[in-house]
Design a protein around this nucleic acid. Structure first.
Lengths: 230, 230
DNA sequence: ATGGTCAACTTGTCCTATAAGCTGATGACA
DNA sequence: TGTCATCAGCTTATAGGACAAGTTGACCAT
């Protein structure tokens, strides 16, 4: 896996030209691993649509537009600036999906799920001093709502977005003081769900995401400032 | 890959209990392949979140809710009824995303992309007798719009949905006479994009998906009728 | 009853060998 | 000179055997 990470970073940096990706043998020699490991490395890169592998042909690097940006693995290996862009694109997606997801969930949510949401809010308000743990529960909160919407495809998409947490942590390590306002947002969403009010849930989720969005913009500004300082 | 398909089907059918998934050795013996192949089979299933693999521990089957239903590989191995359900869930997703995608595209689409869309419409109207080829171009048409929206995450999601074509073909092989109406829909979308009219593009795409939806419902009815006949 | 030890089983990595597929150069032929 | 078949040399795919390393559960001593 370390080999795959290193190789991907080299591809991203432009060190490896499109048609001249290393073969199994190249990798095993360069990194001092066996051909089995080199082989699995290529299999991983292929599963992320980073390269194309076929018997008899050289390995070729695929156009970046076709890479699997939904995969946490790939995200981990990308440079901070690209991850920042992707975070904004992901936010665009969430704005489109999550309000509707909340509305769908309001129509069919069970009491057990509501209990878990309540529990999540409690834990979050206790964790406002620990952003890492907070984001963990945050994501679980949103996933719970997603699951309540009863759609495996949507579920999977939101699950793939779990790299959001670690990625945003990579962008800014400082504790955002705005976690408290997020807890208030979550409570509003929760109450709309308790009332089985689709329109209310949609509106509350939309507000929450808008608040998130301003947060994200501030982070981006900070990152840029830090980059300029360098 | 055949081994992975067979194994997945056995897991789906409930033949393999949760905790007792076969080990590398079991697989290599049962299917008469080397341990390398057995190993890669498990790696594939693990990458689809079907199983968990760790050194020293037995392979365990993960809850179905966590499987990667976005992957064309997995879809291919699932029974028709589940694929039918997934098709409806996918349609729900498209209704949420594609109208907005069309609106975003209208704001920033290039002339080259418009040319390709025009070309796609021409090819589709020539292919109305060949549903397979038609659906191919159809998907390419929608992907082109998606790409114009300039969002890698959304792009990836729609790309993952490419199994829609083959899956719907698996559900019904009869040629839908309604392909002609789809061409009309596409033309409307195209014209809104040419006019750089976001609201118009959104509305046209919404109409198109509504038409698709009634088609899908009819297909589902047909499938059920066929199942009852059995 | 409890706690530590160890044997059996598992995946992870490595090596060597052979099969099978693709590519480009080489040479025969028109 | 141009065209096509052949083949050598690359590649990945598969196989089998060996050892390392981690986990589990049973067994035994206390």
């Amino acid at each position: 896996m370390q080999v795959a990470a290193h190789l991907t970073r080299r591809i991203v940096s432009g060190d490896i030209e499109d048609g001249r990706a290393p073969s199994e043998l190249d990798i095993s020699q360069e990194f001092g691993v066996s051909r089995v490991v080199a082989r699995e490395t290529l299999k991983i890169l292929a599963s992320l649509d980073i390269v194309d592998v076929a018997q008899g042909r050289r390995v070729v690097v695929r156009p970046r537009a076709e890479w699997d940006y939904l995969s946490p693995l790939l995200i981990e290996w990308l440079p901070t600036e690209i991850v920042g862009e992707l975070l904004q694109e992901l936010h665009q997606l969430r704005v489109l999906l999550e309000p509707e997801l909340a509305a769908m969930a309001a129509a069919s949510i069970t009491d057990e799920t509501l209990d878990r949401l309540r529990d999540g809010i409690d834990r979050m308000s206790a964790l406002e001093a620990d952003p890492d743990a907070y984001l963990e529960v945050d994501h679980e909160f949103h996933m719970e709502i997603c699951r309540a919407a009863n759609n495996r495809i949507l579920d999977r998409i939101m699950y793939s977005a779990r790299w959001l947490g670690t990625a945003s942590r990579r962008i800014t390590n400082e504790a955002p003081a705005a976690l408290r306002s997020a807890t208030a947002d979550h409570t509003e969403i929760y109450e709309a769900l308790v009332a089985r009010d689709p329109a209310g849930a949609r509106a509350a989720m939309r507000r929450h995401l808008r608040n998130n969005s301003t947060l994200l913009a501030e982070k981006a500004k900070q990152t840029k400032r830090a980059a300029r300082r360098r």
